[in-house]
């Protein structure tokens, strides 16, 4: 598992990377009430805003951590945004991306690094 400074987690399975937000991020956001995901098949670029997430407090964006194609999205969190608070690092993943360039993965933090990052 890798982590970004934007509080996303990235889990590689073969050539597909699953992306979600960390438990720390979910807690900071508060109760999530709305999630808008990109469409499957969308070509995205790193740092592009591709997900809108709204909590009872505020709206935030999630940036694509990699260049690539969105190959699957988690409709369950669109139907029930509260799942993001219940299981952020498991069932409430956001999207799966097929990266065209894996090199940014080397820059992302490992678990120990992320724990140190969030203090």
């Amino acid at each position: 598992m890798k982590y970004t400074e934007e509080h996303e987690w990235l889990q590689a399975e073969g050539e597909i990377i699953t992306v979600g937000i960390t438990a720390h991020a979910a807690e900071q956001l508060g109760d999530v009430v709305f999630v808008e995901l990109p469409e499957v098949g969308t070509e995205v670029t790193k740092d592009e805003e591709i997900v809108v997430i709204e909590s009872v407090k505020a709206a935030s964006d999630i940036l694509s951590p990699l260049d690539g194609e969105i190959v699957e999205i988690n409709e369950a969190i669109v139907d029930e945004p509260g799942k993001v608070n219940e299981d952020p690092e498991g069932g409430a993943w956001f999207f799966k991306i097929k990266p065209s360039d894996l090199s940014p993965m080397d820059d992302y933090m490992d678990e120990a690094g992320y724990k140190a990052f969030i203090g």
Partner: peptide
């Protein structure tokens, strides 16, 4: 206090 551990929704 903006919220307690229960959270705004709760």
């Amino acid at each position: 206090p903006v919220q307690y551990p229960m959270g705004i929704m709760g």
